[in-house]
Design a protein around this nucleic acid. Sequence first.
RNA 1: GGCCCCAUCGUCUAGUUAGGUCUAGGACAUCGGAUUUUCAUUCCGGUAACAGGGGUUCAAAUCCCCUUGGGGUCACCA
Length: 526
Amino acid sequence: MTVRTRFAPSPTGYMHIGGMRTALFCWLWARHNRGQFILRIDDTDQQRNIDAALGPILDAFRWLGLDWDEGPEVGGPHAPYFQSQRRHLYDAALKQLLDSSRAYRDFESPEETQAQREAAEKEKTVYISSRASLSLSEAEVQKLLAEGKPFVVRLLVPRADKVVINDHVRGQVEWDCSLMPDPVVARSDGSPLYNFATVVDDAALDITHVIRAEEHLPNTPIQVLLHRALGNKTPEWAHIPYVASPGSKEKMSKRKISKYRTNPQFQKLFELGDQVLSRMGIDPTSDALSPVMVAYYKEMGFLPAGVLNALVRLGWSLDDQAEFFTLDEMKRKFSLERVIKSAAGLDPDKLLNFQAHWMSQLPADEKLTGCLPFLKKAGLIEDENDAATQTLVASVIELAADRIRVFGDIFQLDEFFVADEDLKIDDKNFQKRVVKPEAAVDLLRDLRTQLANAVSFDAASLHDLLQAFAAEKQVKVGDVFPALRLCVTGKAQGADLFRSLELLGRECVIRRLDRSIGLAESQRAS
RNA sequence: GGCCCCAUCGUCUAGUUAGGUCUAGGACAUCGGAUUUUCAUUCCGGUAACAGGGGUUCAAAUCCCCUUGGGGUCACCA
């Protein structure tokens, strides 16, 4: 039997990072078994449905390289894959349920049902459906129907039964049907509810394994009962723990972003994100983009490999050693049996670490094509196809080495792209190392002369020149290197100073030195 | 509150199915040290956990029970 799994998102306008992890496990299980992965869009709730809301979800799948065999855009033998377009199937199944008396029309008003619920709660008893409509005679039912009295259709729960499943990750789980209210299967307008549509579709699409987040566990007995009532073969289940927010066991939620901002474990990620996104003209504090969403990581310049690796290790492990997996390795080694039962908090630090690892593995030309769009978007380069620009960027990337963990980190080396007058100088350190020390400016002025007259301007020669200069002036290198760096790059620290000077070029270095010396002098005067 | 789920270092986890090899392993973070002109990297090393209580057993992180704690879910949402 071919394994068929599905991921069934609602079009919400963004792809949740936790949902992505569930989808990954789903995909992995299908691929591991050489089966099929289906994308189905659960958009039965029409009011909440927006057309553009699907785009970001498909984008996330494409970005991470998770392909789907059937679903939106690619179609498939069971098309359409939008629940909103499969109404006829639900109608037919509804008729089957009614005809076989596995479901009934409930004429009770919502208010009445609600009142019963509250009454049960007040008496601390379990609420189960009154089933008052069941005692209506056939004639009475026909009369109510003729009058147009609204009703919902409820599944007639077999109260004597038990539902037992053998979940791939949680083992045996069971429910007592005598404690269950009869679930609504179709609204008064005849439209299907989630649990019903899901069951009809899972059966129609021949889904063999329903792999979904743990919060669906309470839906499972209802779905099992529905499958039974419809005469379907029930699929196998695997309930994956949800992704919790860092350091907690609470489900990660889009609504709690402001809370996450103050979470120390989120610190580094937010800092990096704020820095990169603001540079690209995206308001990092806006709710439109946050660490809860897959797009956030894409926009910052994460690699699919980094995100994927972090996600797969959230709730799954191969053994007591392995940490790094390519998508291909995951595919081969993944198993549901090794999925952990408890909720796993996202670990931003570890995510960053996985990312740094895969970035370090990336060939130079791919780093280049990755960084170029970021520089372009930030307005730091004009034309990303220009050969000279590409050469410069490639050199900067090589110089930056492992300082670039995400593509957005290229902004840390912005001194190679900004015009001299736009160079921002770290004022605090500039004061400390250039303005305040008595001898600094004179030293820099002499250095400027030597640099201007240097025979060659390559890193090795510059290194020798600077060493000799310090010796000649009888000062520590620590008194001149940092000052020089501040003057030409604006930063207190960074990549190799001599290679930076070489890459910047003599003219640029001299110009910036002049500018900084002037700046220091005027500040010293005032 | 009902139903259901979960419980090993700060975090992600190995070990629990077949009890001894676990004075509990790895990774991230953190702290020290080495390398480096700075930063980053790299390399060495340290701190750090079986929620509690009862059983069962020669032996329990592993099995059973209870307690506690955490979480999910209780719609004519998905």
